[in-house]
Amino acid sequence: MIVTAGWYMTLAAVLFLIGAGGLLLRNNALVMFMSVELMLNAVNLTFVAAARAHGDIGGQMAVLFVLVVAAAEVAVGLAIIVSIFRSRRTASVDELSELSG
């Protein structure tokens, strides 16, 4: 039985879904952040699988760029969370609703 790219795609879709669920259902900013990372990685998996299926190295290149962007995002995002925590003593996003209309 050959494991085709479709299998990996399916796995990635499930991972993505779990990440999305975490993002929508949890209110801890750190957990939400980790969920986002999960979703990014799910997409990375599809890139690599597609790179193999098509014999194109472009997919792997894309993963590298996603990685860099994710690293930058983590650096800034965590800095923001720390900064919020310093003034609010909380990591729950539900208490940060000053920007409501």
Binding site: A20, L24, L25, L96, L99, S100, G101
Partner: peptide
């Protein structure tokens, strides 16, 4: 119109996430 649409901007990140989805 803005007054009508205001509630949509709830300030809750997760609501925005849902709308995005």
């Amino acid at each position: 119109l803005g007054a009508r649409l205001r509630p949509l901007q709830s300030g809750f990140v997760r609501t925005y996430g849902s709308l995005l989805a």
